[in-house]
Design a protein around this nucleic acid. Structure first.
Lengths: 198, 198
DNA sequence: TGTACATCAGTGAACGCGCGTTCACTGATGTAC
DNA sequence: TGTACATCAGTGAACGCGCGTTCACTGATGTAC
């Protein structure tokens, strides 16, 4: 049992952190809890992470990478669809991720104290953003729109899917998973907005 | 100084809670911190709030009420405008509130453990929601849309403004207030979406 | 108007809890010769 | 191939911190008579 020299405790701790995160939520996540789950003394994590914040930051890197990956996969799945369909489907993938990994989603987007100066986190976060925004670009091909308006439109699109995912998460956290039935999990047809605002 | 019998300590504690919330954030908010700020012994709050959760819930009621009030005021200001302008402006009021009171906004919408069984909170929260959604209704007058589609459209509109406010908050929390310059604080023209999606 | 007394609000000491952090330590590893 | 030794990873006891909660208490209030 003298498991001195774990080999890759840093990663083992991140795995444990993820489990603890899912079981107890962000506020139940502590260095000691991770150490306990990894079966290691509570002082061990300090050798690998400066602080809880450091560990959370590394976990957020994983979260953003998986998130970007999920968007990327869907992006490829719908490569040959009409741009509007692609937007709708990748938007749905965004929402799906928030439901499949609510705690990771929370970690990325709620006001958890992460170290956004960390270059790896910066990278992963902005890469994930690019995945989403990349979806909007093809839609512009047939439009005449100046650069400012393009940017604003991108942010609006991001706002829709992000807002929908956030509201859905609030709902399911507050009133239980019962509310998150199929119809709620489905991002409504964005064409409805064209109808309303047109 | 023997300030026995404060008179209205419950409200004083809520005021203090608000100050502490703004100064130290949600995670710095504790019953003891509120008591200290109110100049009262740390055991006093228990006489008025069952728990920290109870106090946060009461504070959230205030937050939702002020939020609804802000939307309501703007709603009246623009009563005679075209429905699309009204939507845009009330949406802007939503975003403005999130910038003016970021901590209250966080309290309402982040995964803070509030007691959503509390009838007063239920009331205030759903009332605030009605304020926003009420804005969308006039837009339907000239449209033919079935009930399902109306509901979905309402949620989409809510998602836009909520998502925009959330992303803005993330940005300013992470990178400081410098990023929240005027142009960012302004909700982009929703007509851009009609252009994109139409 | 005055006194007795029940009620209520706030006190302050104490409890146990989980936390991050520190520290001297110990045991495993791998390299130098 | 074998031995000495530096390095490194994990240990476990200890520290101080802020927290919510409890408890017997005390002082103010207001009502009954």
């Amino acid at each position: 049992m003298g498991d001195y020299h774990h080999g890759d405790l840093a990663n083992a701790l991140l795995q444990s952190a993820r489990v603890v995160l899912n079981e107890k939520g962000i506020h139940g996540l502590s260095l000691r809890a991770c150490a306990a789950h990894a079966g290691v003394s509570h002082a061990a994590p300090t050798h690998h992470f400066k602080s809880l914040r450091g560990l959370l930051t590394e976990l957020a890197v994983i979260a953003y990478d998986e998130f970007a990956e999920a968007l990327q996969v869907e992006f490829k799945n719908v490569a040959h669809e009409h741009p509007k369909i692609r937007l709708q489907k990748v938007g749905q993938a965004y929402v799906d991720f928030s439901m499949k990994e609510p705690r990771l989603f929370e970690l990325m987007f709620s006001s958890t104290p992460l170290d956004f100066e960390n270059p790896r986190l910066k990278n992963s976060a902005s890469y994930a953003y690019q995945q989403l925004i990349g979806i909007v670009h093809p839609l512009f091909d047939t439009k005449e729109m100046n650069e400012d308006h393009r940017e604003q439109t991108e942010v609006l699109v991001w706002s829709i899917v992000h807002g929908y995912a956030s509201l859905l998460m609030n709902e399911s956290e507050r009133y239980g998973a019962k509310c998150t039935d199929e119809s709620r999990r489905t991002l409504p047809d964005l064409g409805l907005l064209a109808e309303l605002l047109g």
